[in-house]
Design a protein around this nucleic acid. Structure first.
Length: 581
RNA sequence: CGGGAUGUGGCGCAGCUUGGUAGCGCACUUCGCUUGGGACGAAGGGGUCGCACGUUCAAAUCGUGUCAUCCCGACCA
């Protein structure tokens, strides 16, 4: 490709609306342009990158025995009603009506469609197991799109779905996909960590997320991991053992004390001169409209996803002060947040109040707890005597750095990660309600045991930028770079420089190497800046030294540059590329 | 949806307080000059100042409304 004809417009400055480096660089270097919030045009350079990522994904999926197909982007409401998700998926599902007023949606994921395909086509155990996948645009009407390609509303995803006759078969395919994913991300130049995770709206039991570890804000997930064993988990799923702390409040008897304006745990601990660990904190949540009181030790934080799962909900938020006031009134109390306790809370509107206790509170003795009276607390409380221990006891605690690994007991570390892929065991979550069955050896109809496996193609490309850049621009891994090499003749009016550059250009092309010839009538500085910004892995500069028969070969990743004869430079480049592709 | 901010050529911004019919840098076109890290000079092209209504002789500027975008919280590939 000749640079003079390449459709790309590099900018002198970063766009004002970009926050993270991949977004800034992809816009500045002319890869993408925003069309509307969370929706981007993929310009020619970007499209080349995305096709490369797609092809790596495709090759590895095919090699792993999966079969590619393509499902529609627009889906009918009926299938979503069958699976039960039409009512629970929420606003993220982009709903629309056709001219006949029939309700449709844009595909955010394809479990419903694939299950309908399977039940039509997979009638016998003899056809199983099977794994089907597609690479396609998805649309999720994210509440808050951000970070460019990392969290767009429209994005490209590879989604695969497996169908099996037993848990063992599913386990096997799950491992198979795990292996394939490890290869895929490695080939994209990314180091990933597979971490345990919550399965969220997709549902199911076992799941892992593939995280690109990053220390920037672009990593939206906190990942806990152990340096001594293989334990790692998303913060929404991580568990840990706790170091020993004081759990006996030491109060000699149970009594109600005045705690004027002492609503926060920190203040309360100071006021009563006791550790935060002997306070039982009560928080009011609303899960799918129903009230839930969460009890947890004062020094700990509730992990909302865990709490939501504990009560089997889909949406969770902390109650507003107005809701708390109302809830208190209904139960005959008058208290504000900070003085809440579980005792005597029964109903709120049409709902019974659920009380969930975190494991951390069960061991407390002579502890401090709210009693639904503003400016008062009960000290020296004990379970079963002063307060009833809730029936439902769960782990709803957010793990913190330094807590102990649940597998080996060593302190846990935390880091940030970008989720580029995930694998789920769905079981019969979709096959059962949708009556998607096959006939087994015994002649009985049984629902498929399903798994699903996603990779964010656009996100993977953006994550690669997050992982490979410097102050001058992008440093693409060779495998997914839009082009491998740029040839820069310093002065295009110099006939010798230009003829050598042209020859190298033709030679590289004939070897199947993807090369751009910067034939623009620009000063060298401009071409160098653009080359660095766009991120070609290799650059060949044809300048004055061509008088001595030498060109300059520069590696973007390392900055290393050497003078070589043109034919030797060709050889070097060719070798370097063959080594990774 | 809550809290905060911003909308002025493709990009980045000034002008708004104190109304008088739009400007700067980059990019783009032409010419000259220059050619190893985003040169310089000259001449050009391109904007209903997000949109609507209102105030006024007169609105980018003031008022009301509306839409969009971005940032902080709940989603997820």
């Amino acid at each position: 490709m000749r640079m003079s004809k390449l459709f790309v417009q590099t900018l002198r400055e970063y766009p004002s609306d970009a926050e993270v480096i991949s977004h800034k660089l992809l816009v500045k270097a002319g890869y993408i342009r925003k069309l509307t919030s969370g929706v981007y045009n993929f310009l020619p350079l970007m499209w080349r990158v995305l096709k490369k990522v797609e092809n790596i994904v495709r090759e590895e999926m095919d090699a792993a025995g999966a079969q590619e197909l393509l499902m529609p982007f627009v889906q009918p409401k009926e299938l979503w009603v069958e699976s039960g998700r039409w009512d629970v998926y929420g606003k993220e599902l982009m709903r629309l009506k056709d001219r006949h007023n029939r309700e449709m949606c844009l595909g955010p994921t394809h479990e419903e469609i694939i299950t309908s395909i399977a039940r039509d086509g997979l009638k016998s155990y003899k056809q199983l197991p099977v794994n089907l996948y597609q690479i396609q645009s998805k649309f999720r009407d994210e509440v808050r799109p951000r970070f460019g390609l990392l969290r767009g509303r429209e994005f490209i995803m590879k989604d695969a779905y497996s169908f099996a006759t037993s848990q063992e078969e599913l386990d096997k395919e799950y491992q198979n996909m795990w292996q394939a994913y490890t290869k895929i991300f490695k080939r994209c130049g990314l180091e990933t960590k597979a971490v345990q995770s919550d399965s969220g709206a997709i549902g199911g039991s076992v799941s892992h997320e593939f995280m690109v570890i990053t220390d920037t804000d672009a990593g939206e997930n906190d990942v806990f991991y152990c340096e001594h064993c293989d334990y790692s988990a998303n913060s929404n799923h991580a568990i840990s053992n706790l170091p020993q702390v004081t759990i006996d409040g030491g109060f000699s008897k149970a009594e109600i004390v005045d705690t004027p304006n002492v609503g926060s745990i920190e203040d309360l601990s100071k006021f009563l001169n006791c550790p935060q660990t002997v306070i039982c904190k009560a928080l009011v949540y609303i899960v799918d409209k129903a009230p839930v009181i969460a009890l947890i030790r004062g020094d700990k934080t509730v992990e909302e996803t865990k709490l939501m799962n504990a009560v089997g909900g889909l949406e969770i938020r902390i109650a507003t002060p107005a809701e708390i006031e109302e809830l208190m009134k209904e139960n005959g109390f008058n208290a504000i947040a900070g003085f809440i306790g579980p005792k005597g809370l029964k109903k709120y509107g049409e709902y019974e109040i659920k009380i969930i206790a975190d494991k951390t509170v069960t061991e407390l003795k002579n502890f401090v707890i709210g009693i639904n009276q503003t400016d008062k607390h009960l000290v020296g409380a004990n379970w079963g005597i002063d307060v009833e221990l809730p029936k439902q006891i769960e782990d709803i605690r957010l793990v913190e750095r330094g807590e102990l690994c649940p597998q080996c007991g060593k302190p846990l570390q935390v880091t940030r990660g970008i989720e580029v892929g995930n694998i789920f065991q769905l079981g019969t979550k979709y096959s059962k309600p949708m009556n998607a069955v096959y006939l087994d050896v015994d002649g009985k109809a049984k629902p498929y045991i399903m798994g699903c496996y996603g990779i964010g193609v656009t996100r993977t490309a953006a994550a690669a930028v997050e992982a490979h850049y410097d102050e001058f621009g992008i440093k693409w891994p060779i495998q997914i770079a839009p082009y491998h090499v740029v040839i820069v003749p310093v002065n295009i009016k110099d006939e010798l420089q230009m003829s050598v550059a042209e020859k190298m250009y033709e030679d590289l092309k004939s070897k199947g190497i993807e090369v751009v010839l910067d034939d623009r009538d620009e000063r060298a500085g401009v071409k160098f800046k653009d080359a660095d910004l766009i991120g070609f892995p290799f650059r060949v500069t044809v300048g004055k030294t061509i008088q001595e028969g030498l060109v300059e070969y520069k590696i973007r990743e390392t900055g290393e540059q050497i003078q070589l004869k043109p034919e030797d430079a060709l050889e070097e480049i060719s070798k370097a590329i063959k080594a990774v592709i």
